[in-house]
Write a protein that binds this DNA or RNA. Sequence first.
DNA 1: TCAGGCTGTCCGATTATTTCGGATACCATA
DNA 2: TATGGTATCCGAAATAATCGGACAGCCTGA
Lengths: 254, 254
Amino acid sequence: MTADVPLTTVARAFEILDSIRDRDGASVSELAEALDVPKSTVHDYVTTLARLGYLTNDGGEYDLSLAFLEHGTYARKNVAYADRVEPALEELAAETGEIVWYIVEEGGRGVYAGRGIGSDALQPYASIGTRSALHTIAGGKAILAALPDDRVDDIVAERGLERQTARTITTRDELEEARERIAERGYALNDGENIDGWRAVASPVVLEDRLYGAIAVAGPKNRLQGEYFEETLPELTVGTANEVRLQLRSLGLG
Amino acid sequence: MTADVPLTTVARAFEILDSIRDRDGASVSELAEALDVPKSTVHDYVTTLARLGYLTNDGGEYDLSLAFLEHGTYARKNVAYADRVEPALEELAAETGEIVWYIVEEGGRGVYAGRGIGSDALQPYASIGTRSALHTIAGGKAILAALPDDRVDDIVAERGLERQTARTITTRDELEEARERIAERGYALNDGENIDGWRAVASPVVLEDRLYGAIAVAGPKNRLQGEYFEETLPELTVGTANEVRLQLRSLGLG
DNA sequence: TCAGGCTGTCCGATTATTTCGGATACCATA
DNA sequence: TATGGTATCCGAAATAATCGGACAGCCTGA
C-alpha cells in the first residue's frame, strides 16, 4: 500500500494529501475509511499537516492549502524556468491564435509548465501542472526524440505506451520511427493521438546537450490542417523554440 | 527547532523541503550541515521525497519538483476559485493597464492567488503564491475589514503589525480606523504602505457572509493619483468585485 | 597513476516515535 | 434532551526513525 521508501511516515503523509486532493477535500472519518487506517492515526496526520500550513480545516473538512502554490511557483521558475519562457509563448499564441504550451519532462511524464493563450483558443484541456504520458502529446514526442536512447528505454519500461485514442503510438517500433523523423525534421506532429480532433506541433528546446523541454501549439483539427499544419506552424514553432533557447542561454544556462 | 506537532517526521520532511527552497536546491551534505542533522538522516528524507516524486535529483543536487505545481494548481482552483475569478481580473487589467490581483486570506496572511496583467503593467513585485502581511497591502486591508473582529484579533495576535515602510499601519488603533473606513466605503486604498512609490485600490469579495478574497489594482504612484486613484479606480474595482461575486454565486457557492 | 578529500550511500542496533483501541468531548439534528 | 454522527485525546505496545560508522564513488591535483 505505502510505497517502499525509507520513511514510511512521510510516504503516508503524501498519500493522505493525494487522497484529499482526489476527493476534493475530506474529513477525518472519510480518510480513515478510504485508506483503511484508524481515525486517530489520520487525525495525527491531518492536524500535523494543518498546523504546518499545508492543509486548511474548514469545520472538519480538510483541503490542500495554497502553500503548495508557493512551492509550485518556485519549481516552475527555478526548475523549469517557465517564467523566462512565457513571453515567447505569448508571442506565438498571439501569432497563431491557439494555445501554446511549454512542456517539461519529469519522472518520465510530461508536465505542462507554461502556457500562452491566443485569441481564438478553445477551452484548454490541461492546466499548469497537469501531467500527460509523453508518447501521447506532441511536446512529449519532441522530448522523447531529444532524449538519449537509454533514457527512453527506462521511461518506456516504467510508464509503458498506453493507448489514449485510436491513433496513439503503442509500440516501441512506431515510437522509434517517430523519434527518428522528429529528430531529423526538428519538430513533432500530433494528430489526435491524445484527444480526438486535436492536433499539435512541437519543437524541443535543447541547449548545449541539455534538454529543457518543448514548445507546443495545439488546436482543433479544422483549423490546423494542410500546409498551415505541416509547414507554416512547424516553422513558427521551431522559431519560438530557438528564441527560447537563446533566452535561456542569456541566463547563463546550458 | 521542529514545530510542536504530533508527527515530527512529517514536520521534518517539510522543514527539509523549505530549506531546499530557501537554498535554491541543495545537496545532502549542505542540508545536513544547515539543519544540524546527520547526513544519513537527511539522506533518508531526500531519497524518500525523491522517490515519491516531490524532489528532483540532478547529480546529488536536490530541488523541488513540479509535483507541487499540481497540488498548487488544484488549491488555486478548488480552494480559492482563482480560475473563475481570472477572466474578471483580465478585464480590469485591460481597462486600467495595471496589474490586478486576487488576494485570499490563509493562515492570517494574504496569498496572491490570481493575476491579470495590463498593457502598461510594470514588472510585478509578487507572483502567484506569494504571501504578504495583510495589514500592508490594499487587498489585505479589504480582507481585514470584511473579517469579524475576533478573527482580526487572532490574526494580529499571531502575526503582529510589522512595519514595512514609513507609512505602514503598525498600531491596532490605526488598523481599526482603517477597517471602519473601508467597511463604510466598500474599498481600501494603499499608499506606499508595502512598497514605497506603489499604490493600490482593493475591494473585498463577500458572498452570503462568506469572505472569499479581494480584488486589487496596483501601480506606480505617478499613474495612480488624484481623482483617478480616489474615485475612478475604486469604482472600477468595486464593480469587478461585484462581477466576481456574481460569478461565484453562479457556481452555487455562498 | 595514485593519493587525498570530498561527496553520496548503506547498514543495523538503539532509541524515540508512531500507532491504534478505546474513552471522551463535541455538535448537529430530531 | 436523546441520538448518531463527528473530532479529539490518551497511553501502552509495537514499530519505525535515528545516527555513527563503514564503504563507495568521484573529482582534483600531484
